[in-house]
Design a binder for these strands. Structure first.
Lengths: 236, 236
DNA sequence: GAACAACTGTGTCCATCAGACACTGTGTAT
DNA sequence: ATACACAGTGTCTGATGGACACAGTTGTTC
């Protein structure tokens, strides 16, 4: 559980700056095969099933062989992410920043739906690979014609991405927050039992609505951004 | 690393439904002392330093003694959360839903600042204890006089909470996104080296701004909610 | 008061994890 | 031909969460 967390080494790995050796036996595989195998395990059995042992077994090699390609497990995770994120969407064919951002959110959500373990580990300070980096680049393009400052554009796309991330679990099939998962029904019973202490929560029966939690939040965020944009746009 | 994840058992623990035994030796301590010790470790050395061994040592007992009070580590985490979350804010003295939500966001942010490990583990489907449950109850009170539906109110407060959670790390002292952490400067160098592939990101020099990332997002969210609220409010 | 049953904390054991290190074998450069 | 750099393997360590048997303690029941 050490996970060296050496961002410089991770960067060299992800951006192809590792020097290829000239002498010695040919490697039996490469780092992308490791990444693919690990992604396969994570997709099938969850991220917690991904161990050096398990991934090595998937490739038919011993655990320690992986350490020739990857310094530690943190690097394994890094290449997994880079392998699992798909191609960033091209938003140039869409008119208007709002439609672009909506499409971006949809694409992001779809990518994460294919790899449910992805959103949780892509949070926080981290070195991204080139494929992943293309995503925020794409998102920024949506706001290019906007009067927002560079800083605000960055904040705006993080706001959208973080919202999709947070609502990801609740947005999976047709489930909704407070009604999905196995903890939710128990939580509901507890609230009803303690309705005197938590009247607002207890009476919130998760009324079915036309929009999902994810849609509601995205809509609100975009409305808020629109407000900021029109405010900065000189009228006339 | 099993973590039984039995939400029913967790609920019994957190809501005080565990039957107290009548016979046998008196317990040397109780579950709240375990929780406090674990919180102390997490605050000082991070969540990853919290192991059964470590917490038991803190109390001067063996690891296995803890299992008399807690079924597994998942329950340890659960009582840690309940012990660490402070008292939910009372928003009744504040006028207007927007000011109330702003205060709520501030309080939430402050609570998490005292326990930086808290936001990451409080995400997702989970059984909450009574102290923690008081928080969303408090947040809902901010929107009570609002024309939003129950569902929308829930979605709204989750939107705010999730935003605070996501921007928490970046909001710590005076740091900003893309400039905090040890990965950020490396990421920056990579972007400059590959400015042709990522022109928008590369030229985004994280221009200093008056507002923080957290403030910008919260402002946008509240603007969006205001839009939804005024839209539903019959004019005249 | 004695016997019993419930309960306590302890000691021992196991599987699994990430990772260090020594080793044998292999291919290339000299 | 020989030396060297590299490959994958086997073995070991320390930490993890947790199962289980055990001896000691205490309230309940006779």
């Amino acid at each position: 559980m050490a996970a060296n967390e050496d961002p410089k080494a991770v960067a060299e790995l992800l951006w192809g700056l590792r020097k290829a050796p000239s002498r010695g036996p040919r490697p039996a595989f490469d780092v992308t095969q490791i990444a693919d195998a690990a992604v396969k395990v994570a997709d099938a059995e969850g991220l917690e099933a991904v161990s050096m042992q398990r991934v090595a077994a998937e490739l038919g090699f011993t655990k320690m062989a992986l350490y020739r390609y990857v310094n530690d497990k943190a690097e394994l995770i890094a290449v997994m992410i880079e392998a699992a994120v798909g191609a960033a969407p091209d938003l140039s064919g869409i008119a208007g920043w709002r439609a672009k951002l909506e499409e971006y959110a949809r694409e992001l959500s779809a990518a994460w739906r294919h790899h449910p373990w992805l959103p949780s580990i892509t949070a926080g300070d981290r070195v991204m690979g080139p494929r992943e980096t293309a995503w925020p680049e794409s998102a920024l393009s949506a706001l290019a014609d906007t009067p927002l400052t560079e800083r605000e554009r960055l904040d705006a796309i993080m706001l959208v991405s973080n919202h999709i991330r947070a609502t990801h679990a609740a947005a999976i099939p047709g489930t909704q927050t407070w009604t999905s998962g196995e903890a939710a029904p128990i939580m509901r019973d507890l609230l009803l039992l303690n309705a005197d202490r938590f009247p607002l929560l207890a009476t919130t029966h998760a009324t079915p609505s036309a929009t999902t939690t994810q849609e509601f939040g995205l809509h609100a965020i975009l409305d808020g951004l629109e407000h900021a944009i029109t405010q900065r746009t000189p009228k006339g």
